[in-house]
Design a protein around this nucleic acid. Structure first.
Lengths: 116, 116
DNA sequence: CCTAATACTGTGTGTCACACAGTATGTCTA
DNA sequence: TAGACATACTGTGTGACACACAGTATTAGG
């Protein structure tokens, strides 16, 4: 089964795990879903609505975000931001991410090991 | 629903997308599953057997790897390596990975607007 | 022999990104 | 004032996949 162009699929998979961290990175200050989505897109991290909204609800369920409805001008919007737990976890995940990056770079380099 | 310690879960999710790329990075030369797993572990990328073996079969199905049984000393082993298609795709995925890394670093930086 | 390490196969489960669809409000403009 | 379009959120279904768990067979060492 030779896939016509597997690239988009694998590229998507790469981004997958990073989405949670990307969202958290912008939620030190409160954002609502739509604005967060636009913000991430500006940085080159495009996320579908059907991905981002459930993600935010999930993270709130897991205690990493808190949210509240706010009525300003325009429609009511649900604002999300990091909870205490989220603020605690976020820097650890950043460290994990960087550690993973370092591992990957080593793997790229060492496609053929020097041998001991 | 406050999760006791969500960290391992999220850390795992981060690694998830990278596993395919990690495996491919070491398959420029033929490896069998078990040796590949040990090799990745040495670099700090630990993958369960139940993850790696199906992954290799899947990548072969998708045309990115080819494999053959070899009988040497010891039990027969299935050796995997990048196919032509895999060799073509791999560098593109490395570029994608690095691009993603760059995006993430930007997000980390700009998450806490040190005030305008 | 007996154990442990090696090496692979197979099944089941839970999670999650995304597709797709739907609802409702706000804004612009002709 | 009506229509189109952007905004903003909710909900369901599906497919992919990492991992848990279990099983099989071979090999090496004491």
């Amino acid at each position: 089964m030779v896939v016509e162009d597997a690239f988009p699929k694998f590229e998507g998979d790469l981004r997958r795990g990073a989405i949670v961290l990307a969202a958290m990175s912008q939620l030190a200050t409160a954002q609502y879903g739509y604005s967060l989505r636009q913000r991430l897109a500006e940085y080159g991290m495009e996320v579908e609505e059907g991905t981002l909204y459930p993600l935010l609800r999930r993270l709130e369920n897991q205690g990493l975000l808190s949210s509240e409805w706010r009525i300003e001008d325009g429609p009511p919007r649900r604002y999300y931001m990091l909870s205490d737990e989220g603020r605690r976890l976020y820097p650890q995940l950043v460290i994990s991410w960087r550690s993973l990056s370092a591992v990957m770079e080593n793997l790229f380099k060492e496609g053929h090991p020097h041998d001991a």
